[in-house]
Amino acid sequence: MKEQSQNKKTPNYSGVLAVKVDDLTVAYNYKPVLWDIDLEIPEGVLMAIVGPNGAGKSTLIKSILGILKPIAGSVSIYGKPYNKQRKLVAYVPQKGSVDWDFPTTALDVVMMGTYGSLGWIKRPKQKEKKAALEALEKVGMLAFKSRQISQLSGGQQQRIFLARALVQNASIYFMDEPFQGVDATTEIAIINILKELRKAGKTVIVVHHDLQTVPEYFDWVTFLNVKKIATGPVKDIFNDDNLTKTYGINYKVSIQE
């Protein structure tokens, strides 16, 4: 019941903060990868995190999710620390972060999304299986449910990952480069699902590489390069100035409105 009410918060910039990051600093071997990041992500946005390679985009997501330990700073999800709000958050890691030769099927991978709500020891049952099948259908992969995951194409694997996040029925979705190495059809399918999530009042945060598609896909953007350069609505801040500050060379936004 509690979850339901949280899911039903008014969509689109209700003024509620989904994620708040304060003074976050993360370092690998004493080399700061993220430096003193302050970030406020309003509920209901579809946000891109952009920045050059090594800017700390994945690191930012992983630190918010508690996968990496920051050396300073704090993160809150709807006003509380992450480990109290796990069930509100779903995460789609980079496709390359797992071994696709692992002996398991597409359906089984999607079922893994239900493990969080099950907790330790309890096994997934019919209810979880049903949810997983629905998620597979949503991403157009139902026909592949029994297929071994190495027998799927890159785009299909990405859809399986997306389905695994959908099955968590979260309020905030973090995705690490979901468009990496997928074909055009899959890219469109994925972005449509993300837009649906936003319509349902969810907050979606995506590490994104293709600057061309930012205005088309997203309504909110964060520029990141070790430090936070800017964050806000795409229409206000996605401009040459911020791109140049982030990427260090002169950028022209070559996108026609």
């Binding site: 992983k62 999710l65 508690g66 996968i67 480990n83 796990r86 958050v89 995460y91 890691p93 972060s97 797992v98 071994d99 692992f102 398991t104 991978v109 893994m112 493990y115 969080g116 099950l118 907790g119 330790w120 020891i121 309890k122 096994r123 997934p124 695994r164």
Partner: peptide, 18 residues
């Protein structure tokens, strides 16, 4: 379930609290 999850995807296991 926990063994399978953390063997396949450590990151997800961590973010789900396992």
């Amino acid at each position: 379930k926990e063994l399978k999850l953390s063997t396949f995807d450590k990151g997800l296991a961590a973010s789900l609290g396992f």
